[in-house]
């Protein structure tokens, strides 16, 4: 993989890699509050069944995970633990912020103990609004993230230039590399 190390990878090979990465996402479930139950419904219930999207919700530790779903209220006491576990995840890693609390504080916007948005601590790729979002909304967030991964220029990431889009897939939201996506309910 010398080409990869030097940050130069032929486009067809990149798209092949990206397809593989986007359909084998290992999700670390960070269930914090009410949204955790809806996340559980999306991941664990026969009606929503996230595994058909190529998402595996059973890593034993964040060190095996590609994606973390922060679902629920982030409190100031919890925030250091979130940062620490995020830093344990191997690159490339993605974050979905699920629910109003994780997006911006939600109904606790004036509470003294709640962190107003997980994006103050870790970078977020996809925001899923709702209080709590329906499981379908989380599934759409995952689909949007997969579009983005398919479109990603891995060379740029390895060269340390951050997330850049390759415009392989024609997705409306996937074009914006590095800019967070919001699911529209």
């Amino acid at each position: 993989m010398g080409l990869v190390d030097r940050g130069r990878l032929p486009k067809p090979l990149t798209s092949l890699f990206n397809m593989g990465r986007s359909y084998s996402l290992w999700v670390y479930q960070w269930g914090l509050a009410c949204c955790a139950i809806e996340m559980g419904a999306a991941f664990g219930s026969p009606r929503y069944d996230v595994m058909r999207l190529g998402v595996i919700p059973l890593p034993a530790s964040p060190r095996q995970a590609d994606l973390v779903v922060i679902s629920g209220t982030v409190t100031d006491k919890m925030a250091p633990a979130i940062k620490r576990l995020y830093e344990q995840m191997p690159e490339p890693k993605y974050v979905i912020s699920m629910g109003s609390c994780a997006n911006c504080g939600g109904p606790y916007w004036d509470s003294y103990s709640v962190t107003k948005g997980v994006d103050q601590i870790i970078p977020v790729d996809v925001y899923v609004p709702g209080c709590p979002p329906r499981p379908e909304a989380l599934l759409e967030g995952i689909v949007l993230l997969q579009q983005r991964i398919k479109n990603e220029d891995m060379g740029a990431r390895w060269r340390g230039e951050g997330t850049k889009s390759m415009n392989i897939v024609d997705g409306e939201s996937a074009e914006k590399g590095g800019v967070p996506v919001v699911v529209h309910n």
Binding site: L32, T73, K77, M78, Y108, S111, Y112, S113, V114
Partner: peptide
């Protein structure tokens, strides 16, 4: 306890 304290009584 306290990792999910959201301050209901104050709110």
């Amino acid at each position: 306890a306290g990792y999910m304290h959201r301050g209901y009584e104050k709110l």
